[in-house]
Simulated assay, not measured.
Amino acid sequence: MNKWAWMSFGTVLVNVVLFFMFRGPDVNLPLMVTVESSLSIIGIVCAVLSKKIIAGTAGFVLNGGVLIVMFFLLLAMGISEP
């Protein structure tokens, strides 16, 4: 694996750590969704730049999964507000 693949996996790890570190009723949720979504997009770009089939696919799927979870969190946040 090259440095782009490691950076892609690193963004997944940072997203998971941030997700579990900053949680609770008093968290700034729009900020967390923005930060984690942008990190996930950076991870997807790094996965594409890695040009390795296995590492690129794994990084793309993992970062895409984080991006989908953040989309559903943003959707639930929009539904719950009056």
Rank of each mutant, 00 (worst) to 15 (best):
D26V: 04
L49F: 15
T57N: 08
I42M: 13
A58V: 13
S80A: 05
M21P: 00
V35L: 15
V48T: 10
T57Y: 03
M32S: 13
W4M: 11
P25R: 15
T34Y: 07
V48C: 11
V14W: 00
A55S: 15
A55N: 14
W4Y: 08
L29K: 14
F22E: 12
K51Y: 13
S80Y: 04
G43M: 09
L74V: 05
V45A: 13
L62I: 07
G43Y: 11
E81D: 10
L18H: 12
W4L: 07
F9W: 06
G65W: 02
S50V: 02
F20Q: 06
L31F: 04
I44M: 10
T11E: 00
V48I: 15
F72S: 01
A55Q: 15
L67T: 05
L73A: 15
I41Y: 01
V66T: 14
R23P: 04
S8C: 06
L73V: 13
P30F: 05
I42V: 15
K3E: 09
M7C: 09
L49P: 03
T11F: 08
L67S: 03
V27C: 06
G64W: 05
W6R: 05
F19P: 00
P30C: 06
G10C: 06
L29Q: 13
A58D: 02
K52S: 08
P30H: 08
N2Y: 05
C46K: 00
P25V: 14
G65D: 04
I54T: 12
G43R: 07
M77C: 00
I68L: 14
A55M: 15
V45K: 03
L62H: 01
S37K: 06
G56M: 00
V17R: 06
V35Q: 11
R23C: 09
G56Q: 01
G43C: 11
K52C: 05
M77K: 07
L74W: 05
A5R: 01
V66E: 09
V17E: 08
G56P: 06
G10F: 08
V61P: 04
S37W: 11
I44P: 01
V27K: 07
G10E: 08
N2M: 07
K52I: 07
A76H: 07
P30K: 05
F19G: 09
V35T: 13
T57F: 08
G65M: 00
F71S: 02
E81V: 11
S50A: 13
I44C: 05
F71I: 05
L75S: 09
A5S: 03
L29N: 13
L75A: 11
L49K: 15
A76G: 14
F9P: 01
N15W: 00
G24H: 03
D26T: 09
I68Y: 12
K3I: 12
E81P: 01
I42R: 02
K52Q: 15
P30Q: 09
P25Q: 15
F60H: 02
V12S: 06
G24M: 02
I42A: 15
N63Q: 12
A58C: 07
N15S: 07
V14D: 03
L39M: 14
L73N: 12
L75G: 02
K52L: 11
G56V: 01
M77R: 10
I53E: 12
F20I: 10
K51M: 10
L29I: 15
G78M: 12
T34K: 05
N63F: 13
T11V: 01
M77W: 10
F19T: 05
I42E: 06
T11W: 04
N2W: 03
